[in-house]
Nucleic acid binder design. Structure first.
Lengths: 341, 341
DNA sequence: TTGAAAGCGCTAACAC
DNA sequence: GTGTTAGCGCTTTCAA
């Protein structure tokens, strides 16, 4: 591997001069510049970022720690991050924890050892985890989920508004008895979404039945299981269901259909997050769109800004606004009810 | 940031001793070991991987260059890679080119500058690109696609067999007039799949009509466009369609339905690759399963093996076997035809 | 305008 | 067993 020393010899200049032309960090006469560039060309020189990093104490690298790359919610986020990273000459080290806490911890250590300039963490909900991160004294921003009370360097979406919008939509269509099937209640996003559901129900003068509230995971299987449970336990079924994610909605719809219920004719279902596939799901899913690409993009921009501004960086949070997407899974109008009013 | 020097002072030992206990690289008396560990604890020392890399001329980091992380084919591959990387104490720098050649090139430069120990490239088809990679003289393995004639350090799947299997399935069900809707014909996977289709048709004594062969991209939009084209141009429609990917099949089915054709009653459709969502697509898609997680896992294992074995590494290729998944998109039996035989 | 030299934090050869 | 030291490839200060 050729080094600056090799170049300096061949171009008959000092190493400092080579460095100056490579980095354009100070003026070098055209003559020497040429000789250096020629040598670089001939020897196929490529600067060693490791050595540079050691000297400069910065790596132009950021770590991204994700909870689950298989969840279709995240690839667009990653792409948003990657796009802005490369535009700013940063690389991203991707770490997928598969929701494994010990893996999360060892990734944190690893990132610290690799001296990344900053960290983006998608899906930190546990205050303990936040402590672990803060201990390391490095730039970071949280994305999507966040621990209770955390208000700095965060980009997420307005989950409360998302579910409120879903309920509003149901209300507009005349649905009244609405169930809620959510994810893990400990996650910030779950809490916010449930809050939004409650808020929406109240606002629309609708009654919330505790027997129609279900919790589980943000997965299709969990949605399926919750729906089965509902079908078994509930005497008078709801006429509509708010699922707190599209994946959950998929599972719910699958369960309903397997039990002979038609969507939306018998029970309407709304998703949330606008999964890539929800438009072509068994029944095209009405849902709430989340600007995920934007979330990744803004998260990385926030991080890089924090890195470049250093101590005098002013932390902030960005909350993106979700929007209604109407398809077919709740388009069955309850004419009688609407007329009756 | 505390360094070995700080530790050595506090523990009143030499730097070499600190290094020895941190890396367990040579015997140190229990007494000194204790002092060192205590100092490490107290000062919250974390080794600097950058400095270590500079010295050792290896980074324990590999680059992964992907053509499109938004395509649902890839997340599982990435997960497979990441899982084996972390198990072997390697980090992965993820690079998503979004199918942009200039971005690919600049990522290659970047990876070289960052001195990654190796590179995995998902989706190199162009011999020129391969040349670019080989120029850099670093360990690499190709995954999924490959340029013509490339037979070293590769893991992919048997694409020919995949399409052959699809045709066999159609033939078994009594379908005879079978169309093919493929991806970009320059990609290795496309060629292999088309070959498999042709082979399967011949083997089953079925006639291939050139007017029933379409090319495009590996996207839903492209599948949609090809199907529209077929609907317009072809006088006598096929009774079945082989799509070369599930995404294409999705587009095809969408187009057919929009034009009043039922799947599978009017036209049957087979996909290929077993997308995460194909089971719950508008019509549950019969397809060919690809072991993508395995592909990523084996790709990374191959790379790490190549890195550790160095010059005396014996390059090889691994071709994984796809398998039939029967669902509903081609389950309409042509009784008359079958009986007629 | 150019070059000499110190030093980033670590490893490893060698000396004691 | 432990310590001294050179040097990985680069940046940057300072002197010339």
């Amino acid at each position: 591997m050729t080094t600056m020393k090799d170049i300096s010899k061949r171009a008959k200049v000092s190493i400092a001069t080579v460095s100056a032309v490579v980095n354009q960090s100070s003026f070098v006469s055209p003559e020497l510049t040429n000789r250096v560039n020629k040598a670089i060309e001939e020897l196929n020189y490529r600067p060693n970022a490791i050595a540079r990093s050691l000297k400069k104490k910065s790596t132009n690298t950021v770590g991204v720690i994700l909870s689950d790359i298989l969840n279709p919610y995240y690839p667009a986020i990653v792409k948003g991050m990657d796009d802005v990273a490369i535009k700013n000459n940063f690389s991203v080290i991707l770490c997928n924890t598969s929701n494994d806490q010990s893996r999360f911890l060892s990734y944190l250590d690893l990132m610290e050892e690799k001296r990344v300039d900053g960290l983006i963490l998608a899906n930190i909900s546990d205050p303990e985890d936040l402590l672990e991160i803060e201990k390391r004294k490095l730039n970071f921003v949280l994305v999507n989920r966040r621990p209770p009370g955390y208000n700095t360097s965060y980009v997420g979406i307005n989950n409360e508004l998302a579910l409120e919008t879903a309920v509003d939509h149901f209300a507009t269509l005349g649905y009244e008895r609405i169930a809620y099937i959510g994810g893990n209640s400990e996650l910030s996003t779950s809490k916010e979404r449930l809050n939004g559901f409650v808020k929406g129900m109240r606002k629309n003068g609708l009654q919330i039945s505790n027997s129609l509230k279900f919790e589980g995971e943000y997965t299709q299987d969990s949605g399926y299981a919750s729906a089965i449970k509902m079908l078994k336990e509930v005497k008078v079924l709801p006429d509509a269901i708010c699922a707190s994610s599209d994946l959950i909605a998929f599972g719910v719809i699958k369960a309903l259909r397997e039990h002979g219920m038609r969507v939306p004719e018998d029970i309407a279902v709304m998703g949330n997050d606008n999964n890539y596939f929800s438009e072509e799901f068994l029944v095209p899913l009405s849902t709430i769109n989340h600007p995920t690409y934007e979330m990744g993009k803004l998260g990385m921009e926030m991080l890089l800004q924090g890195i470049s501004e250093g101590a005098n960086h002013n932390p902030k949070q960005i909350i993106l606004t979700p929007s209604l997407v109407v398809r077919e899974s709740c388009n069955f109008i309850h004419r009688e009810k609407v007329i009756a009013k």
